[in-house]
Design a protein around this nucleic acid. Structure first.
Lengths: 212, 212, 212, 212
DNA sequence: TATGAATGAGTTTTCATTCAT
DNA sequence: TATGAATGAAAACTCATTCAT
């Protein structure tokens, strides 16, 4: 994320805009940190402002309201993730390799940005309203990518054709989501990416044809 | 649930206590309904009281505070679930059958009590604090049951011995949790229990020895 | 006003309600006092609460919001005034006597309740929105009463028939309104009711010599 | 503004001043429009700036603060009005004609500048503080002019000598003020100047038949 | 036990004003 | 002069909780 500022919605052009952009991102990062620490509802906007090093009112120059902060963290991270995922998927040939890279990407992002991981795994789930919005936008796209890979694997004969690719995609997402939540809640600070291999091992043995 | 009052924490003995118990459960059910509808933070205690048909102050005769309502819904449902799960597990012989019954039990409870399902899948996740507490108590017990069955299956030779039973248990929980969340957020009202077979199909193909 | 609590919208029946009613009126009187002193926009709800001897939140148990306080002061006083005006008008026979009593009633109310007078003459005028609402409800009724008396005088031959009764009513209201505003803003504390005679003298006789 | 009051009403001399003058007046007109539309307290300085086509900060180069905008609108219009009134009064001989021209002038100004009329009739009344200041300065001068004409009429024998000229002046102001407020609040867009004749008719002749 | 009126702490948000450029 | 991004004080309102009845 650090090195990919251009992947956020608005692109700064002038030096002046760059500064505005920097403030916007600083506030978003501060919000992620504060939300991760206190939980969205208990977090105070003034705390976000203080963490970002700006005045309370400045937050409202960049974001409509507190809720918009949460939504923006989500959009910001998700857009970036989907973009890199699509790019990386294009580089791998084997569907198994694609899934492996995809999971790696997901988990590496979380390990690099623990605050974002916490917000994603815990805070964003706080309301049906948000969850529904989430489900119908980015989650749908996330599942779409997985589904495409699985169907590709079914065509090339390495995954069982009779399986419903949609169910399989949800299945894999569920497993990965659970690993992520588990990692976020655990204080043992074990590696999350280390889970990719054992998880995919089980998964592949389940979806592969026995002669694949 | 109505007819299984004994499965809630305290058992009423006298007629007087029975009445208290009834009110306590009424409040808990009202809380689940209101939390499911509005989300925990937006839900008002007065709304819970009104839904339960009692005065605002009465809620505080049975529960310490608003947070206690959430915790109590969780404890109430979880104790009941774990108890029936352990009982039912004892009745089945085959590990695969055990897992099948376990998943059925989990999903049937949710289908019967949608408010509880919403609270479990959405509202309870609202804070790391709660999630951590959840992880170290009932989730641990839930995973324990799964792990026991899996290890039993590894002993009897139908599940691959080299797999880490703890990872497998989390894997299975993650898949089921994802199916549940998906069902809660979906408005299509598809059957949740119908997911048991396809999910376990994938799972078993993954964890079984090829000669099992 | 003190001795006519029943003329306010809600009538208290039980002893319990009477207490609630008392609090409602206390808050309304406190609001009138604070609004009169600081002006509506500069007045703080917390100041109203303190003046009424209740907690801030209690204000919102009786009134929807700050604006509702202003509107309620107006409705409360206006309903009372219109009612006593109609009653008193019925008791007088001569149209000139009716107008005299009407003006007396209006000015006496203001002298007895200076806070209310200030709110009426100054604070209620702060927005077109309110003024429009005011114009189409109680002011209309106020002008209606005046107009009825004037038309009665035109029928009995003491007022010039060719005059537009609506214009005459507005004319008289304007004069009285100006006297009231003048009195409110003056610190000399002259008598307002003392203005009734000279004003009606001009109004009745006109400013021109009959031989001019 | 404190030390540059003359730059509002007066005419610009240098090109530089012309620009300043133009901007100052543009801001004042914008303020009148915005205050008329939203009410003083709800109006935003940024909205005034936007309407005037200048940056927010520029408003503060010409006016001390938001309150100064209101006061300046008032001073600006009032100075202009008093000046033209005095000039026009000098041109008429008959006291009745003088009053007629005076009323015409007042109402024509309002018809030409509706925003100003709204600010005068509604927004300026929002606080006792302002009303008191208003009463002791321009209103006093306004009433002075009226009083002079009335006393002139009393000397020439067309107005009744025994009337208190101060009361008569207030009386007439009250009537005209009411007509103006009525016109401002009415959406029927009737002519305000058309009210001059009927109002002065009543004023001059009185409402009673001479034989009543 | 049950009630529900009263409490008052606490937080988001707005917007007049400033000041570095 | 002109700008407009940044400031931060200030206040309406909510609602969990209490407690006298």
């Amino acid at each position: 994320m650090e090195n990919k500022p251009k992947e956020v919605a608005r692109r700064p052009e002038t030096a002046e805009e760059k500064m505005r952009y920097g403030k916007s991102e600083a506030i978003l990062r501060a919000a992620a940190k504060v939300f991760a620490r206190s939980g969205y509802f208990n977090a105070k906007v003034s705390e976000v402002a203080k963490t970002a090093g700006v005045a309370d009112g400045t937050v409202y120059l960049y974001f409509k309201n507190k809720d918009d902060l949460l939504t923006s963290i989500f959009n910001w991270a998700m857009e970036e993730f989907i973009a890199s995922a699509r790019k990386e998927m294009a580089e791998a040939a084997d569907p198994r390799e694609k899934l492996r890279r995809f999971a790696q990407l997901h988990f590496k992002l979380f390990e690099r940005e623990r605050d974002i991981a916490i917000v994603f795994q815990i805070e964003l789930r706080h309301s049906t309203k948000f969850m529904e919005q989430f489900s119908t936008t980015y989650l749908a796209e996330y599942l779409e990518i997985l589904r495409d890979i699985i169907e590709e694997g079914q065509l090339t004969g390495i995954f069982r054709k009779q399986l419903n690719s949609k169910v399989v995609a949800k299945f894999l997402f569920g497993v990965m989501d659970e690993m992520a939540t588990n990692w976020v809640l655990s204080h043992k600070n074990h590696s999350l990416t280390a889970m990719v291999e054992p998880v995919l091992d089980i998964f592949f043995n389940g979806v592969m044809e026995s002669n694949a």
